[in-house]
Design a binder for these strands. Structure first.
Lengths: 334, 334
DNA sequence: GAATCTTACCAAAACGTTTTGGAAAATTAT
DNA sequence: ATAATTTTCCAAAACGTTTTGGTAAGATTC
C-alpha cells in the first residue's frame, strides 16, 4: 500500500489541498509549511499516484514509441540507440517512454488507436517515416501530437528532424574515387522510406556532380541477412561493383559478410560504407566507414518539439536539421 | 476528446454499469445487449480510459524494464532483443512495457521507487542480475513483484529463468580442441554478474573435465570497445592464447577486431567464440561461433511467471531452465 | 476602530472507470 | 394465483489526485 496524499496530510494535520499545492509549488502556501510538507513527503516516500493525477489532469506524461511493423522484430540496433536517446531526454523531464511492437492479432493501427483513446500516452515519436505514411495521416487527422524523424511527403505539417547529408555524401563519394574505386552501387531499402529516398538522392546527386556514370541500384529489406543475400547475388554478376554504399549500417554488415565470402579484401578490392554510425560499426572487419548521425541531438530535438507541442506552444511544422559526420575507416581503404 | 463509457451508454440508453459489464464479459447481461454494446463501442472507437481503470482497479497493466545503469547507454544489442521478446509476450496479454534508463539526477533506485509508489507499473523484469543485487533486495523487501533473468545468490526467492550451459560449453571446448586450439582464454565481464559467474564456471569446469591446464582469465566491461582494448593487450603478451571464449557476443565483436588488428586470421590462427547468439553475429567476419540463447522462450517464461505472480497464483520461486544452442561458425574453424 | 487587502489555508467537485449491493421484470415452481 | 427463482439491469460509492472557489485570520490603510 503506497503512501497517499491523505497519509501525508493526516500526519501534518493539513488538508490534502495544501499538501498538493505545497508540492506543486503554488505560492499560496507559507514557506515554512511548504518545507515541512516537502520534507515529510520525501521521508514518507510519497509519490503521487499517476493514475489519479492523469485522470484529473488529463495528461499521461508518457510518450509512446511503436516499433514500425516493417521490422518484424525490433532488435535493430538502430532502434535501441534511438530509444536510448529518447529515454534519456524524456526522463530528464519526468516523462516516461512506453514501448511496444504491434502483434499479429492487434494490428499496428489498432495499437496507436488504443493508446490514444485510452489516454495511455500524450503523444508519439515516429521513426522510419515513409513517403506517404498512414501514421502521419492518422495522427494528424485525429489531432494527436507527434514528432517524427523524417518528414513524409504528404504535405502534412508536423515537427520533425531532418538529416541533411548532401554535402557529406559528396565527400564520401570523392573519398571513394580518390581511393581508386569507380563502379559504385547503392544498396538500398524499401523504396518509400524517407531514409532510402534521401540517401539514394544524395548518392545520385554526388555521382552526377562528379560526372560519374550512374551506379547500380539494388534493393533489400534493410536487414543484415537480406543485404547479405542481395549483395551475394550482385557480386556474382558479370560486372560487379567495387564500392557498395549502403543505406544503413546494418545493411552494410550483410554486405561485408557477402564480400568476404566472395574472397574480396574489403578496403582494397571493394569498398563498403554504411550510414547511421552504430556503436559496433567501429569493430567490424574491417571497421566500417559510415556517416554517423548525432543521435543525442536528434532525440533531444524530437522530444523538445513534441513537448512544446503538448504545451500548445508549438510552431506547427518546425523542422530541425542535423548533419551527420563522415567517419572514414578501413572498409573504404582508410 | 476520446469517447467515454458515458457516450456509449447514452447512445444505447443503458447505464454505464451495464456497458462496463457487457464489455468485461460478465454473465449478468443479456446476450443481445452485449452484442449491441460491443458493436457500438467498437464503432464509436471506445477504449476505456486507462487512468480511470487503473485508479479503480489498482492495477496498471504495465510492466517496467529499467536498463541497468551498469550499461551507460542501453544500446546493447542484447537489450533490444530481450525487450523485443518481452514486448511480444506482453502485448499478447494486453500489457504494456514501460522502459527507462536511470538518469544522473534521479538515480536508478529512485526510479524503481517512483514507478512503484506512483503505481505506474505492476511489476518489473530484471536482467543482468548480480551476485548480490540491491534490486532483488529492494523489490522483495517492498513486496513488489518481479521476475529476473538469472538468480542472485542472496537466497531471496523469486521467479527466474536460468540459462544452463554446462554441457554445451563442454562441447564448445571439445570442438576447439578438435580444431587444434589449446591455449584457451576467457574474456569475461564484471565479476559479480551472474552471467559472468556462470559462464566462467562452465569454462573452468570444461577445462577441468578435459584435463586441460587452467586458461587465462581477463576482465572487461562487456562492451565491444572495452573488450577490444583488453584483447589487444592480451595478444601482445609473450604467450598469447589461441582461443578466446567471450562472455557474450558483444565482447566477441571487440575481440574479433583486436585479433584482426594483430594480423591474425580468425578461425585459423585464433579461435573466437561468443555467447547469446545475437542476430548480427552470423554476419561478422568470420561469422561468430556462439551459444545462442532462446530469447523468445526466455521472454515467454519471464512474462508468464511475472503475470502469474501478479495474479497471486505464483509458486514463490519458480525457476525455468533454458538451454542454449551451440552455433558453430567459421570463427572457430568451422 | 472600521474597512480593505493579504496571507494561508481548506471543502468539495471533478476526472472515467469498476464494483457492490440491490431492484424490477420475467420466468419457473408450487 | 402466489411464491420462489432467475434474468437483466442500474444507482451510488470508490479509487487518489488537482483545481475551483471560497473563508478566516492577520496585516495594512484610512
Amino acid at each position: 500500500m503506497p503512501t497517499t496524499i491523505h497519509d501525508v496530510a493526516k500526519k501534518l494535520n493539513l488538508s490534502i489541498t495544501t499538501v498538493s499545492r505545497a508540492l506543486d509549488g503554488y505560492d499560496d502556501v507559507a514557506d515554512s509549511t511548504r518545507k515541512l510538507v516537502v520534507v515529510t513527503a520525501q521521508k514518507m516516500g510519497y509519490a503521487p499516484n499517476r493514475a489519479a493525477r492523469q485522470l484529473r489532469r488529463q495528461k499521461a506524461e508518457t510518450i509512446g514509441f511503436i516499433i514500425p511493423s516493417i521490422s518484424k522484430h525490433f532488435n535493430e540496433p538502430f532502434f535501441t540507440e534511438f530509444m536510448s536517446g529518447l529515454g534519456d531526454e524524456l526522463s530528464k523531464r519526468n516523462f516516461d517512454l512506453l514501448v511496444s511492437n504491434a502483434t499479429e492479432d492487434e494490428g499496428e493501427r489498432a495499437l496507436y488507436h488504443r493508446w490514444v483513446n485510452s489516454q495511455k500516452v500524450d503523444g508519439f515519436i515516429l521513426n522510419r517515416v515513409r513517403r506517404h505514411d498512414w501514421r502521419v495521416e492518422y495522427l494528424s487527422e485525429w489531432g494527436i501530437p507527434f514528432a517524427g524523424l523524417g518528414r513524409s511527403h504528404d504535405g502534412i505539417p508536423y515537427p520533425s528532424v531532418r538529416i541533411e547529408a548532401a554535402d557529406v555524401y559528396l565527400n564520401l563519394v570523392r573519398h571513394l574515387i580518390d581511393r581508386g574505386f569507380s563502379r559504385l552501387a547503392f544498396i538500398g531499402g524499401p523504396a518509400d522510406l524517407i531514409n532510402q529516398i534521401d540517401r539514394l538522392k544524395w548518392f545520385k546527386n554526388a555521382l552526377k556532380k562528379l560526372k560519374l556514370e550512374p551506379g547500380n541500384l539494388i534493393t533489400t529489406d534493410m536487414s543484415s541477412t537480406g543485404a547479405y543475400e542481395a549483395v551475394c547475388a550482385l557480386l556474382s554478376s558479370p560486372t560487379p561493383p567495387d564500392a557498395l554504399l549502403c543505406v544503413n549500417d546494418q545493411t552494410a554488415y550483410g554486405a561485408l559478410h557477402a564480400a568476404h565470402e566472395h574472397g574480396l579484401t574489403v578496403g582494397r578490392d571493394i569498398a563498403i560504407a554504411g550510414f547511421d554510425g552504430l556503436r559496433d560499426s567501429s569493430h567490424t572487419e574491417p571497421p566500417l566507414t559510415t556517416l554517423a548521425v548525432p543521435m543525442p541531438e536528434i532525440a533531444h530535438a524530437l522530444v523538445q518539439m513534441l513537448l512544446k507541442k503538448l504545451n500548445g506552444e508549438a510552431s506547427e511544422a518546425e523542422e530541425v536539421v542535423v548533419l551527420p559526420e563522415l567517419c572514414i575507416r578501413a572498409s573504404t581503404g582508410g
